[in-house]
Simulated scan of single mutants.
Amino acid sequence: MTNKTTEHLGVPEADLIASGAIWTAREIEQQPRMLQQTHELLSAMRDRIQAFVAPIAGNPAARIVLTGAGTSSYIGQCLAPLLDRQLAARVDAVPTTDLVSAPYLYLDPAQPLLLVSFGRSGNSPESLAAVELAESLVRDVRHLVVTCNAEGALNTVPARESMTLLLPEETHDTSFAMTSSFSCMLYATLLAFSGAQALDDRIGPIALATERVINEFRLSLQELALHGFDRVVYLGSGLFQGLAREAALKLGELTNGAVATCFDSPLGFRHGPKTFITDKTLVMVFVSNNPLTRQYDHDLLEELRQDGCAARIIEVAAQRREPQAPDTLLVPGMSAASDIDLLWPYVAVAQIYAFNASRALGLSPDSPNKQGTVNRVVQGVRIHSITP
């Protein structure tokens, strides 16, 4: 009896190891399991979390700032519009790169603040500086750190009131690009402000849909990546605007900039960015389940197909429409889900495509930038003191 060859994302493990792709593949594939573990871990802390965030979240005069750099900042961009509607406090997504370079535009000394800091490693210079700036400039401030690294410096930055949500160790991605760290920090933050009980019945369908996307779409996404598109556009409305940015970054990172990327909302795309499209461009649209928003997504999709300028147009959707549009990736079991719950299966599509595009170019997804001009933890940042 022969042993079955171990595979990840449909590729034999030995091939992944040899080509420098094993960590990226594993970390994409582990997301359904890591989401479940994150839910269980934080559910056990639900009372402590609620007690910590409630004084700010329930205060209409207060503000919550979701912050991080790069992929970590897009977590906030995905969540801020929804949390701002749900919570009494104002909620904004502000990258640490903006906070550090122009703190007086974003930090009000008199407004109570909860700074939510995302960090895979917790060692980014801007993340540490953002905490220190908030401590020095804001009179009433507390810090919620969401991180994947128990040894990260972000966990030990001096602060008056702070709490750390430390996610399962496996979410501290070894690969260059953030995958399971993004999805689990996103989920942890939604749980922290929505309450674990609100997600008890949703985590199962979210994890299952993400698992099915990984298992059922990997071959079609592998074939798509072999077409050699030199430009890719990601479009999403509402919560999916942040997702479109993350998808564009993931492809840029894993292809080492060899594929040009663009992101926008479907309505915004008509206002100039549409000129980005050539006959070698792939367009991928993350379609909303909201009835109104979905109509705008479909309008743009039909317009692009009628234009006939793009090489391929893919719609990633959870609701079937008749007649079924060509090149549709239909996420199973989520036709009645809210858009927030679609973020996880949708981002898996973008990650798998980026992984395969990297391999199609002969790159190593675990470390695609051989020049050393970008790093897993950013380097070369000088933090300057505030001018009195």
Rank of each mutant, 00 (worst) to 15 (best):
R270H: 08
S358A: 06
M284Q: 12
P32Y: 04
L342N: 03
F193D: 05
L292T: 12
L304P: 11
G272A: 06
H271R: 01
I206V: 07
Q77F: 12
G362D: 01
L114Q: 10
A192I: 07
L254W: 04
A57S: 11
T275H: 13
A61T: 12
L35V: 03
A310Q: 08
R202E: 06
L251R: 01
D279K: 13
H227S: 13
Q351D: 01
G372C: 06
V347N: 04
A354D: 00
R312E: 14
D299K: 15
S358G: 01
I206K: 02
F176K: 02
D307K: 10
A348K: 01
E7P: 10
A159V: 08
L329N: 03
P345W: 00
A198R: 15
R218L: 03
L99A: 05
T67A: 15
A357K: 03
A51S: 12
V146P: 06
V378D: 09
A14C: 10
E13P: 11
L83K: 06
N290C: 09
V94R: 06
P368K: 04
H8T: 02
E151H: 14
I386P: 11
L301M: 15
R202Q: 10
T38K: 05
D230Y: 07
D108Q: 13
A110N: 10
S358E: 05
T147C: 07
A354N: 02
E7C: 15
V116E: 07
V213N: 01
G228Y: 03
L41G: 09
